[in-house]
């Protein structure tokens, strides 16, 4: 069970959060301009890497804010937590 430091509330138990999958996949501004393959790339394709993965988490049973987490999937260590809209850190 992780301990996650919500950027707005501080350190809380994992049970207060939900994971929202890979981060930094922006919704295309003009979906209608995309062909099926391009749209499918946005819609379905997600990475599942061993190592540092950038993810979205939501403090759903707390402040309800979304934020980003850089997590090492090999040991679940959270390397960095940063707010929505911020650039992914170099790790």
């Amino acid at each position: 069970m992780f301990l996650i430091s919500c950027p707005y509330c501080g350190e809380r138990d994992q049970s207060e959060f939900v994971s929202g999958g890979e981060a930094h996949i922006a919704r295309p501004k003009q979906p209608t301009e995309l062909n099926d393959d391009q749209w499918a790339e946005y819609l379905f394709m997600r990475k599942n890497i061993k190592g540092i993965q950038f993810e979205r988490w939501n403090h759903v049973h707390g402040c309800r804010k979304w934020f980003n987490v850089a997590r090492d999937t090999s040991n679940d260590k959270i390397e960095k937590i940063y707010k929505m809209g911020e650039q992914p850190p170099k790790i």
Binding site: V18, G20, R56, N58, V60, R64, K65, W66, M84, G85
Partner: peptide, 13 residues
């Protein structure tokens, strides 16, 4: 509620 918050906070801030 979660889905709407998600779009508001992340796609259309």
């Amino acid at each position: 509620m979660s889905k709407l918050e998600d779009y508001l906070q992340t796609e259309w801030p």
